[in-house]
Design a protein around this nucleic acid. Structure first.
Length: 561
RNA sequence: GCGCCCGUAGCUCAGUUGGAUAGAGUGUCUGACUACGAAUCAGAAGGUCGUGAGUUCGAAUCUCGCCGGGCGCACCA
C-alpha cells in the first residue's frame, strides 16, 4: 500500500466533492473540472499536502483565486479522513494539514512489507525490454559502457519495482564491417609475432589487447595458422577473439552487479534469415528503392531528413538493416509492448531513422524509447583523458571497479541524469574520502545496524510492530523522516514513468540526511521504554528503505564500515 | 550550414512537468563528541537561473532570437 497515493486520492475526493457542491449551489460557475493536482510542498509551513486547483479554476469561474479557494474550503467535508485542517495561502493555494496517523501507518506498512516496500504496480506485468551496454566485443569496455551499464541496470530494477516484467538484453555486434577489420587487425598482430612483415590496416584496431589475444593463441596453437588461407585464418581469429572478449565483458559486468537475461547476437539475424526477411518485407510494402546498385529505405517518408542505405552496392547489408531486423524481432517476433534502448550521444542521429523504421514495420514508434546518454569525460589531474578504443590506452570498466570499487562507481553514475555531460574525475573517485556521497548513505545504514545490534546485545526485547505505540514519535526530526519514508513508492513510480532511475539516488541521500539529523537530535536508547520501542521501529523502517533503494542500484548496504 | 543535448552559488548538480522566499553537496569561515559510530550534526557567507524579448494571475521551467560548450549530419557502427 502507498500512503501518499491514498491521501492524494482522499484530497482529490474532498476537493472534487466540494467543487461539485459549489457548482450545484451556484457559487462557482464551472463547466468541467480539470484534474486536481496534489503535491507535497517543499516548505513545511505550507502544510503536508497542497493543491493549486483554485488558481487553475479562477479563470473559468471568473473569480479571483483566493475567493475560489475560500469557496472550496468552506464547502469541504473532510470528516473521517486523514485531513485535520485546510487553509488558504499565498496566491490561492489550499494547504492541507494532516493527522500524523498516516505517518505511523507508513512505519507499520514498511515493517510489514519489508524488502517489498516501495514496490508499486503501475506496470501490471507489462513486458518491457531494456537493451543497454551492447558494447562492441572487439575490445574492453570503456567509461561510456560503464555509465550505460549502471544506468540501464538501475532503470531495469526500477521498472521491475514498478511492476513491469523487465528482461535486460545485450546486443552483440558480432557481424559486419568492424568485425572484418577486427579480423584483419588480429591477423596482422599474429603475423608480427613471427617476425613477419604485416601492419594493422588503416582504421583497424591498434589496441595492445589484440597483441595479447594473439600471444595467447600462439601459445596454444603455435604457428599452425601461418600457412592457412588468409580469409579462413581471419575467421578463426575472429571467433577466438570475440569469444574471449565477450567472456571478459560478461565477467566485468557481473563484477559490476549487472546480469543480462539475453545476449542477442547480430550474426544470428543473418543466420536465421531475419535480415533478408525484413528487407523483403520493406520491399513489399514499397518502402525501398534501388539506386546506384544499393537498396535504400525511404526514411524520408517517415519524417526523417534523408533516406538510408539498407544494402550496399557490394551486397552487404548495413548496420541499420540489422538493427531494423533486430527491432522487428523485439516487437513482432517476441512481442514486447515497450522497448527501451540506451545509447551514447554519438548515436543520437540514429534515433529518428530507427523510429521511422519501426513505424514502417507497422509498430507505433511511441513503443520505442531511446535514452540518449551524454558521453563521459574522464579527467585526470585536471586534464581530459581521451578514450579511443582504436588506439587502445583507455580506462576500462574493470580498471574502474578495481580503482574505486563497485559501490562508488555505481553510485557515481547514478547521481546524474543521462542527459548531463558527466565529468568523471578519476583522482576524486579513486580517493576513498568522505566526499564520496555513497559513504554518506552507507554510513547511515551502518549506524542503524550498530544501534540495532546493541539492542540485541543488551537483551532488550522488541515487540512486533502492532505492539508498539508509534504515536510517541512527535519530534520534528521524527516527523520529517517518516514523511520522507512515505514517499518511496511515489518516488519509484515517478522514476519509472519518467524512465529516470537517477531520481532514487537523490532520494536515498535525502533519507540518509534526515536520518543523520534524527540521530543527532533524538536518542534511541532512552529511559522511557515505550518511546525507545517506537524509535527502534522508526530506525528499522529507515534501514529497510535505505537497503531497498541501494538494492535497486546494486550497491551494498553494509552493517559496519 | 542543419539537427540533438547542455548552460542555475567559486566547483559538481537538484528544482516534483507553469507555482509560494530558487535548493543540496563540495569548498571557505564559526561552533558541537566523559550516553546509541564526528565517514555525523548546527550556523554563516555565497545568485542578473548564459542573454534579449514574448506568452499569463505567475517563467529557472513554455515560444522565438542571440552567445558559449558537447555530439552528430557515411554505401561506419
Amino acid at each position: 500500500m502507498n500512503m501518499v497515493q491514498k491521501i492524494t486520492e482522499q484530497i482529490r475526493e474532498i476537493v472534487g466533492e466540494s467543487v461539485k457542491g459549489c457548482i450545484d449551489k451556484g457559487i462557482l460557475n464551472i463547466e468541467d473540472i480539470p484534474e486536481i493536482q496534489v503535491e507535497i510542498p517543499r516548505e513545511r509551513e505550507h502544510g503536508d499536502f497542497s493543491t493549486n486547483i483554485a488558481m487553475v479554476l479562477a479563470k473559468q469561474a471568473k473569480k479571483n483565486p483566493v475567493a475560489v479557494a475560500r469557496d472550496i474550503v468552506e464547502n469541504a467535508d473532510y470528516e473521517g479522513t486523514y485531513v485535520d485542517s485546510m487553509e488558504i495561502a499565498g496566491p490561492g493555494f489550499i494547504n492541507f494539514r494532516l493527522n500524523n496517523l498516516w505517518l505511523y501507518k507508513t512505519v507499520e506498512i514498511i515493517h510489514n512489507e519489508k524488502e517489498d516496500y516501495g514496490r508499486v504496480n503501475i506496470g501490471q506485468g507489462k513486458k518491457v525490454m531494456v537493451e543497454f551496454v551492447s558494447a562492441n566485443p572487439t575490445g574492453p569496455m570503456h567509461m561510456g559502457n560503464a555509465r550505460g551499464a549502471a544506468l540501464g541496470d538501475s532503470l531495469a530494477a526500477v521498472l521491475d519495482a514498478a511492476g513491469y516484467d523487465v528482461p535486460r538484453e545485450f546486443y552483440i555486434n558480432d557481424a559486419g564491417n568492424q568485425v572484418e577489420k577486427f579480423g584483419k587487425s588480429l591477423e596482422a598482430r599474429y603475423l608480427q609475432l613471427f617476425g613477419l612483415d604485416a601492419e594493422v590496416p588503416e582504421g583497424g584496431y591498434q589496441g595492445e589487447d589484440l597483441v595479447d589475444l594473439m600471444k595467447e593463441l600462439k601459445e596454444r596453437d603455435g604457428d599452425k595458422y601461418l600457412d592457412m588461407d588468409s580469409e579462413e585464418r581471419q575467421q578463426v581469429f575472429i571467433r577466438y577473439a570475440l569469444k574471449k572478449n565477450l567472456d571478459k565483458i560478461k565477467t566485468d559486468l557481473a563484477d559490476f552487479g549487472v546480469n543480462f537475461d539475453v545476449w542477442f547476437s547480430e550474426q544470428s539475424l543473418y543466420d536465421s534469415g531475419e535480415i533478408s526477411d525484413t528487407i523483403e518485407y520493406l520491399k513489399e510494402k514499397g518502402y525501398t528503392y534501388e539506386q546506384e546498385g544499393a537498396i535504400w529505405f525511404k526514411a524520408s517518408e517517415f519524417g526523417v531528413e534523408k533516406d538510408e542505405v539498407l544494402i550496399r552496392s557490394n551486397g552487404i547489408p548495413t548496420y541499420f538493416a540489422g538493427d531494423i531486423a533486430y527491432h522487428r524481432n523485439k516487437f513482432i517476433t517476441r512481442g514486447y509492448d515497450w522497448v527501451i534502448n540506451i545509447w551514447g550521444a554519438d548515436h543520437h542521429g540514429h534515433v529518428p531513422r530507427m523510429k521511422g523504421a519501426v513505424e514502417a514495420l507497422g509498430v507505433n514508434p511511441d513503443r520505442l524509447d531511446v535514452i540518449i546518454m551524454q558521453l563521459v569525460r574522464l579527467l585526470r589531474e585536471g586534464e581530459v583523458v581521451r578514450m579511443s578504443k582504436r588506439r587502445g590506452k583507455a580506462i576500462t570498466l574493470s580498471d574502474l571497479i578495481e580503482e574505486v570499487g563497485r559501490d562508488a562507481a555505481r553510485f557515481f553514475f547514478n547521481l546524474r541524469a543521462a542527459d548531463t555531460h558527466l565529468d568523471f574525475d578519476l583522482d576524486l573517485a579513486v580517493e576513498k574520502s568522505s566526499e564520496n556521497p555513497v559513504f554518506y548513505v552507507q554510513y547511515a545504514h551502518a549506524r542503524i545496524c550498530s544501534i540495532l545490534n546493541q539492542i540485541v546485545q543488551e537483551g532488550i526485547q522488541v515487540p512486533a510492530i502492532d505492539g508498539i505505540n508509534l504515536t510517541l514519535l512527535k519530534e520534528n526530526a521524527e516527523i520529517d523522516l517518516m514523511r520522507k519514508l512515505a514517499e518511496l513508492p511515489e518516488e519509484i513510480t515517478r522514476a519509472a514513468m519518467t524512465i529516470e532511475p537517477t531520481r532514487i539516488t537523490r532520494y536515498v541521500q535525502e533519507v540518509a540526511a534526515l536520518f543523520h539529523v534524527f540521530y543527532n537530535t533524538c536518542r534511541v536508547m532512552v529511559e522511557d521504554e515505550r518511546l525507545m520501542m517506537a524509535r527502534i521501529a522508526l530506525i528499522e523502517a529507515t534501514r529497510i528503505v535505505i537497503a531497498n533503494v541501494l538494492g535497486l542500484l546494486s550497491i551494498s548496504a553494509p552493517e559496519r564500515m
